[in-house]
Nucleic acid binder design. Sequence first.
DNA 1: ATGACACTATTTTAGTGA
Length: 257
Amino acid sequence: MRIATWNVNGLRARLDFIRIWLEQRQPDIVGLQEIKAEADDFPHSAFEDMGYETVLHGQKGWNGVAVLSRLPVEDSFRGLPSQKDMGARLVGARIAGLTFVTVYCPNGKSLEHEDYGRKLAWLDDLAAFWSGQGAEKGILCGDLNVVPKPADGWRGEEADGEIFHTPEERRRFDALLRAGLVDLFRELNPDASAFSWWDYRGGAFRFGHGLRIDFLLATRPVLARVTKVEIDRDFRKKKEGLTASDHAPVIADLDWG
DNA sequence: ATGACACTATTTTAGTGA
């Protein structure tokens, strides 16, 4: 079984690009973030045609998350309780015995902005929500907008203390690990310096100026079945003249019987 | 020093993103 997470930066603008990726990579379950569309504007049939069922938590213009699955969806849920006013940022499903949740964490804007405190509170509520799920086989994936360690950002320790790199944000990332989750990319690639996001501006991708802020977090029983994890940086590049998202997909392969 | 690029709706300009 192949699973993935990807912040697509606008699903309607990215639809043809996403189609190419699905055909080439053939994932079974995908968590998508920054859909930027509500259900009425969502191209459900395009994904049906490719064999995927969609669980959507949409929103007009901003945010929005979805799960695509070509395995039967047994149950689904939308929204982070107590954080409804922060927008459509969490959606989950139970598929093949797996609890699969994908999230788009608030950005925070700046340390001085009121959204920074809201980001921290949102991450607190996410950890509580996840613990409440009690999932034995679980995946919590998505764009967390946190750089967990200096090695996960192109500026290393130079960026410590800036937004995305603060001790407060990093404590909340670590709290997810203390709740029993494992950062799959880091677990299988302990010494890699690899990123999942590069700014569109200033040739950031070309110069290697990126951050690792997109994650596949998994419970131990899932980790035991993981055979490979990679950041699909080839799909941060233009394809057939189509513009890429500023995020690359993160993919894991699992032995799932 | 600043902006750089891309998306969307509030659309021909502004807000957001990270």
